[in-house]
Computed example of a mutant assay.
Amino acid sequence: MTLSGLPLGVTVVVPAHNEEAGLPATLESLAAQTVPPEQVIVVDDASDDRTGEVAAAYGARVLRPPQNQGSKAKAQNYALPYCTTELILAVDADTVLAPDYIERTIGVFDDPDVAIAAGNVQTRFTRTIWERGRSVEYLFGFHWHRPIQHAAGSPMVCSGCCSVFRWSDLRVAGGFPERTIVEDMDFTWSRQIEGRRAVYVSDAVAWAADPQTLTYLRKQVWRWMAGFCQNVRLHLPRLMKAKPMLALWVLLALAEIITAPLWLATPFLVAASDTQSFAEAFAWWLGAETLLTLPPLVYAARRRRLSLLGVLRNVPCVYATKAVNLVYAWKALVVELILVPLKLAKGLTVYEKGRPALAAPV
């Protein structure tokens, strides 16, 4: 038994709203785990399709709140009283786990200081420009940024689509945080501020379904960027005192957002100064970009056993997703870090998914 009095097993919680088409792949991946969970709970969050029936057909315990909870964190909190193990794996209804995901992540909880852990997230599909761009972002981030942060003992976030939480830490925190629009980052930062550990498990792999269209990519990126800035507003002063290395990553992320327009405009600025032609300036800029991004992508392709040519073909697409990221990152800076403190805006409070409900198979 653990300090919470619960066995050190795993309860999976899957919040789901209108997920009848995508849910089977998630539940099949849970059924195929080398270390099976003690139970799988699907929170059928006021769906108007067959989500609950599909979940029950796969043997999951189905909970249906009397009304839509309004956010993923609230749906997950609805399931907490029904969890019977010390470890809780929160999985999005569009995420597929590698068969050894639970096996690889639960081992880090032998350390009683670990409060949360998550693995390596990759894209499930690369059909559209937006998915292809996101695939490059994930390959770079999860094989460059995350390992460095993990080595420094200060991961920026344990991805909410596939994180394992310790029940006793959730209880101390009052459940999955509902005060920001991104509960995973909020919990990751707040627990590290309290002296607990967050862990990145690089060999545990999950595949997430990312936005296929610009419309839904904008919704998702706005939620992510607004949530990041909400957490900056809420936690940064305490981070700088209690977890300075994590504060450094946060400040570097803010600096990157602020300086990104200047970097992207560099070829135009150099050409305008008459020191070089635009072609020469762009060639230097492209060379620097390649030098900074190519080595981690080559390593990631080898690590994930992906075609290097296929990865490189997706690289141009990442500039489309970067443009969307930059627009909403700046919007978040203005709204969440300037207008909200001045009481001129409320900030983002409405949770929207980054993709539409999939059509049910015929």
Rank of each mutant, 00 (worst) to 15 (best):
A206M: 07
V182M: 13
G141P: 00
A173I: 00
M185L: 15
S154Y: 08
I193H: 01
D184A: 13
R166E: 05
R146E: 14
A204C: 06
F187D: 06
T128I: 02
F140S: 08
P177Q: 10
T213N: 02
S154F: 02
D184Y: 04
V205L: 13
T180Y: 08
D203R: 14
Q212M: 01
A208P: 03
V199K: 13
D186K: 10
V199N: 09
R132K: 15
Y200H: 08
V157N: 12
A209V: 06
V182K: 05
I181Q: 08
I193C: 11
G141R: 12
H143Y: 03
G175P: 07
R191Y: 05
A209M: 13
V164Y: 05
A208L: 06
C161G: 14
A173Y: 07
T180R: 11
R171K: 09
A152L: 15
F165W: 11
V164M: 07
P177G: 10
D184F: 06
C161H: 15
F187C: 10
E131P: 04
T213E: 03
I148M: 04
G160Q: 12
W207G: 08
H145K: 10
S135E: 01
Q149E: 15
H145N: 06
F165K: 06
R146W: 04
L139W: 05
S168E: 12
G133I: 04
S163W: 01
W189L: 14
S168R: 11
D186Y: 02
R166T: 05
W167Y: 14
Q192G: 04
S159P: 11
H145P: 00
R171W: 12
I181V: 13
W167V: 09
R166D: 05
R132H: 01
F142H: 05
Q212S: 15
